[in-house]
Design a protein around this nucleic acid. Structure first.
Lengths: 202, 202, 202, 202
DNA sequence: CATGAATGAGTTTTCATTCAT
DNA sequence: GATGAATGAAAACTCATTCAT
């Protein structure tokens, strides 16, 4: 019985955290990192400021939560792709497509997720940032591709960084141009670039 | 004679500005943008807080100065390379090499120069951010390469973003790994990636 | 029930505002406008500096509040007097008496209300300064008196300024002499001066 | 001989003080009391800021000097008028005329001379403000007028305050209306008001 | 547990005054 | 004496965090 009460409590707390999460995302999207104050989050969440502290010990913890919660599903999906039994090239395409789809949602959080100093700082003490993990995933695929003979023998980590960066940048270009078309359409183009480069071969 | 006194004064002022610049860079490197307060800069520079305002009318002006002073020589160099009468591929290599050499100095400012939201904001009213300009430079080279037939017919701007991003990311990877070897060594590798991609040809 | 809670809150907020008002008046009286800092007000009110900003968005707003709260009842009263159906001379006497009574309270604020540049500036965007309004009120009475034939045909506005100034000055004289007798006793005398001047008739 | 050197020094110092005086007046007129900083005065005087302190130990001393130097000639003139052997009424008219003429010059300093808290504070330790002295002068004239039978038997000091206030206020009215016609034209009107009041006699 | 007022350290900026040159 | 850079004590305002109700 106490067990049941316990569960109910956990459930409620979890819902609260989610509500605050949504609010935080909204505020971050609207005001940017600098403008994200606990006041605004509380107001957006329609909760008293003090209540935030019942669910998150500090602002930093809230930010970490937002980060994790946003990155998590993407990482989940990446793991699934990695686990499939398909050629590296297909995995790569799936992953890129997935990323773009993911970034089409969360546009507002892009800076927070990838660029911002704060993000970086709050990740300092994490085992490994989503960012780094993503790069690692690519490296794994590259290794597979090399074994399969479909990819050149290059340093997998280096290649992963390059690939990831190319993708990230193009997203940023789109965002800074206020381009609203879905970024998922860029998948082919990016894949082409990554596989064949820009040189006109022989 | 008055001329000489004048010069001496300018020199001193210039030295102060440089000292403050150094201090600001140190603080930014150590504490990040968020943590860069005038207090800390003053302390680092071993000057009174008020003295900063004898050389920079506001914090924003100081930041602009730091940015310009850091970015300007690079832009200069880029223009020189663009103006040379050599094939696009050579320009590209020169540019990348230059960038890496440049980033080897200024490691601490990398985030300020390329990643930070604040940096972006304070550049909003500048002619055009160094970032955007750099991408534009690459696009120019790509256009030349396409005409020369050495580069594939791809959207030059898109390619520029991709290339720039790849490079930026690899730098970031190096930095976050606390890799201390000079980044300039990566030039070949990046160029190879960009030109041929990672696919194993046919 | 929620209604009750709401009311209690409003009441408390109102009390705080009043407390801060008192503190501000005390500080203004003691240190003058120049010396009225938010720090001092906070200290006087025995609240944290930050708390002031929970009740007044800015220092200017606090000053406006002080001004309004002090001036409003007087303006109210003036309007009542103007609206009465009595001869101009009676209105004039009433108004002057009211003013003196009013100034007997608020002695400390006299300079803030009538003399200070800052006060004037902060009233610039108000409908119309209490000062100007008071003069206007007198002019209205003078016009009535002229019509009734009890006052000479003089420029009403000019007369209003003269009258108002005479009164203001005498108050100031009293204050600077640290004269503590109620100023309301001066009503007759001022009225006599205003009506008959100091000349000995023919 | 040393005497001569001494004199030359005094003369130079005196000239410097006068130059700074002019500059201070210009700044006060242009920027108001709040905006009168030592920096601006120095710039206006085309002197280094530090030099100001060779001639005035502090800002307050400079302000006192400005005040005195501005008020002095007026007081001088008032004394002369008082000393003349003419009826009180004529003295009164002369004095008022003189005041208006005086205020026509020094418009920019009006607030500093008569209204400002700062002015008040810096006069606190003076034997007697120019303001108070002026009132005293009027009282003297009133006493004479009473003896001569041309003025009613009223409290001379009170009358002096009233008269002075009326005049001051009308000046202020002119200034706040940005009325640029010379105020000296108001002499008759004010005198009329003061002598006969606004009442329509019997 | 919810609330939101209270807190106060921290931020940018100003400016009278000092002092080495 | 002249200079003006250096100083640092205030000033207005912000906001993460606490805590009484």
């Amino acid at each position: 019985m106490a067990r049941l009460v316990e569960q109910r409590k956990d459930l409620l707390a979890s819902m609260m955290r989610d509500g605050i999460y949504e609010a935080a995302v909204a505020v971050m999207t609207r005001y940017g990192m600098e403008g994200t104050t606990m006041d605004r989050v509380a107001e957006e969440a329609e909760v008293a400021k003090g209540s935030l502290y019942n669910y998150f010990p500090s602002k930093l913890d809230l930010l970490k939560f937002v980060h994790d919660k946003t990155v998590e599903p993407m990482e989940q999906r990446a793991q699934e792709i990695l686990a499939e039994e398909i050629p590296a090239l297909q995995k790569l395409e799936s992953l890129i497509r997935e990323w773009f789809g993911y970034l089409d949602k969360h546009r507002g959080l892009f800076n927070f997720l990838f660029n911002d100093q704060v993000a970086r700082e709050l990740l300092l003490d994490r085992k490994s940032s989503g960012h780094a993990k993503a790069v690692e995933d690519v490296a794994t695929i590259v290794r597979q591709g090399i074994q399969e003979g479909t990819l050149r023998q290059l340093d997998p980590m280096r290649v992963a960084w390059l690939l990831f960066g190319a993708m990230r940048e193009i997203v940023e270009g789109q965002l800074s141009n206020n381009e609203t078309r879905p970024m998922i359409n860029l998948t082919e183009e990016v894949l082409d670039f990554v596989l064949h480069g820009i040189g006109n071969g022989k």
